[in-house]
């Protein structure tokens, strides 16, 4: 089968991973800008990071026949630092028109703080002004429900943003219905050991339908699995869903969402 991983941090993965992905059928990936594991000391570092996401990583992926797209923005964890945020937001326009950039992401909330909200609001306005797609990171654990609602309210306060051009990621059982009812796309993330198992993701497909859903690995520098979307596809098959339905979730859906950006062409 062919599949698209719409959320994976390839700069933290190896060429072995690229090889395993490409021979397994994952020929298109999208990489959101995110937190590096430690707080960066200066905005200058983001300049080099955005260059890596827009020039170096697509070239590395191309060696394995994989198309690499990315999302640019300031992640919610580093948004608590407003001085850094001012500087990072100022350099985004230099990179946002590069050929593999799909829009703003992953932007969102982490602990649902006032500073995080302020920085998210500014990035939503930037995306709205350019009519760009948006990929939203929602908080983890006990902060998710509250944060997801706050984010959706903020987006509704920005009338230029069309929910069908926004994907709200890391959705779980308690947030999916509200996200879908408001017309957004939603993402489900598969982590190897704890939350977001293939079983629960396919439960969501069965309960809520596959419309406006993208399933991703969020693979990164921590324990993660770049083939997890294929394992999830297999869970769907194991329950007797047909090949067309599996293809819809793991290939056609991410293609439809990201394809709203004219730069995107799936492999």
């Amino acid at each position: 089968m062919k599949a698209i991983d719409p959320h994976i941090h390839m700069i933290s993965r190896t060429t072995d991973d690229y090889m395993r992905m490409t021979i397994s059928g994952i020929h298109t990936v999208a990489e959101p800008a995110f937190w590096a594991g430690f707080d960066r000391a200066s905005a200058d570092c983001f300049r080099d990071y955005f260059h890596q996401l827009t020039v170096v990583e697509p070239a590395r992926a191309a060696r394995f026949g994989i198309k690499h797209y990315c999302w640019l923005g300031l992640n919610s964890k580093e948004s608590e630092n407003l001085t850094l945020a001012d500087e990072v937001l100022a350099i985004i326009p230099e990179f946002i028109d590069r050929p593999n950039v799909l829009g703003f992401g992953e932007i969102g909330l982490n602990k649902n703080s006032k500073n995080e909200m302020a920085v998210l609001e500014r990035q939503l306005a930037m995306a709205a002004a350019r009519n760009d797609l948006v990929l939203v990171h929602t908080p983890h654990l006990e902060d998710k429900l509250k944060g997801t609602r706050m984010i959706m309210d903020m987006i509704r306060n920005e009338p230029r943003l069309d929910p069908s051009r926004v994907l709200i990621d890391h959705a779980e059982e308690h947030t999916i219905a509200e996200i879908k009812d408001r017309g957004f796309w939603f993402g489900m993330t598969l982590y190897p050991n704890s939350k977001g198992s293939p079983e629960r993701a396919i439960d969501a497909v069965e309960i809520y339908g596959s419309e406006r859903l993208c399933i991703n690995s969020s693979g990164d520098w921590s324990v993660s699995d770049p083939l997890s979307i294929l394992k999830c596809a297999n869970e769907m098959r194991r329950r007797g869903h047909g090949e067309a339905a599996v293809n819809q979730v793991f290939y056609e859906n991410p293609k439809s969402f990201m394809g709203q950006c004219p730069k995107f062409v799936a492999n």
Binding site: E80, N110, K111, N112, S113, K114, N115, E116, M117, P139, H140, L141, E142, D143, K144, L145, K146, R149, M150, E172, E173, H174, R200, D203
Partner: peptide, 25 residues
């Protein structure tokens, strides 16, 4: 599953003054 998720979630609606040094449990 949804009921378990909701039971573990922060039910408040006001933003935090600051996220500095905060983490999720």
């Amino acid at each position: 599953a949804k009921a378990v998720q909701v039971a573990l979630s922060d039910p408040t609606t006001e933003p935090l003054d600051s996220a500095l040094g905060m983490k999720a449990y």
